[in-house]
Amino acid sequence: MSQLAPAHEPKKVMVVDDHLIVRRGIISLIAEDPAFAVCGEADDGAQALDLAAETLPDIVVLDISLPKIGGIDVAIQLKRIAPDAEILFLTMHDNERIVADALRVGARAYLLKSECDDKLMEALRALARHQPFFAAHVSERLLESYLNVRTDHSATPLTPRERQVVTLVAEGNSNKAIAAILGVRVKTVETHRGSAMRKVGAKSAADLALYAARHRLVQI
């Protein structure tokens, strides 16, 4: 397939994977196309977020399973750090729920590592045009189901007030800030937050953010 003509500056690509040999393989493929330039590489989620803030990549090639901060949580935070960045999940996971999570948090491309040699550059070229690219195993039905479905609050176990609190937590607000926004006491916020966490099985604010993304309580 022909290369994308570099009419402007090369698209900056950040590569995030905890296996050095995988990163080296990805970087070597990208180096063959002058329309793209690797702006950095990271081997864990925390390092990836620091690097993204420093380099503001156009495209992030991201694994699902990462040390320190998992790929899904990294994607959620990336959309705040570099909101225009396109995300390509490159992973071994061929699991419908994981694919759904990837779509929910804003990924526009999803490939299996077994497809990397044949499809990686094709996916990057699509993302450079802000177009989606998914491997064959991500069916059209799955895309329609998870990208176009309307939010169904009745499917969540949360009360309306708990949904408000979860949404505000996912947007990065502290309990004190949420109390001011809702006009309630901090203790009330803590009660709703704790109740919501128990209902959805969340252990942290990051878990609540992922829940909010899955159920479209936040716009990512």
Rank of each mutant, 00 (worst) to 15 (best):
3 Q>T: 15
4 L>V: 12
5 A>T: 15
5 A>M: 14
6 P>R: 07
7 A>S: 14
8 H>A: 15
10 P>N: 02
13 V>Y: 01
15 V>F: 01
18 D>F: 06
19 H>E: 10
20 L>Q: 15
20 L>Y: 14
22 V>D: 10
30 I>V: 02
32 E>Y: 05
33 D>C: 09
39 C>Q: 06
41 E>S: 09
44 D>M: 04
45 G>D: 02
48 A>D: 01
52 A>S: 13
53 A>M: 14
57 P>E: 02
57 P>Y: 04
63 D>M: 01
65 S>H: 11
65 S>C: 14
69 I>E: 09
72 I>E: 05
72 I>S: 04
75 A>N: 09
77 Q>Y: 11
85 A>P: 06
86 E>V: 08
92 M>D: 13
94 D>W: 13
97 R>I: 14
100 A>D: 01
100 A>C: 06
100 A>M: 05
100 A>S: 06
102 A>H: 08
103 L>Y: 03
111 L>N: 02
112 L>M: 07
115 E>S: 11
118 D>C: 11
121 M>W: 13
123 A>H: 07
127 L>H: 00
135 A>G: 09
135 A>S: 08
138 V>M: 03
141 R>G: 13
145 S>E: 05
147 L>A: 04
148 N>W: 15
153 H>W: 15
154 S>T: 15
154 S>Y: 14
155 A>N: 15
156 T>H: 11
157 P>A: 11
158 L>I: 08
160 P>H: 06
162 E>P: 07
164 Q>L: 11
165 V>F: 07
170 A>Q: 06
175 N>A: 12
175 N>V: 12
179 A>P: 02
183 G>H: 09
183 G>S: 08
183 G>T: 09
184 V>K: 01
185 R>G: 14
185 R>L: 14
186 V>Y: 04
194 G>A: 08
197 M>H: 09
197 M>Y: 10
201 G>T: 12
202 A>S: 11
204 S>H: 11
209 A>H: 02
212 A>V: 06
213 A>W: 00
214 R>T: 04
216 R>F: 03
216 R>W: 02
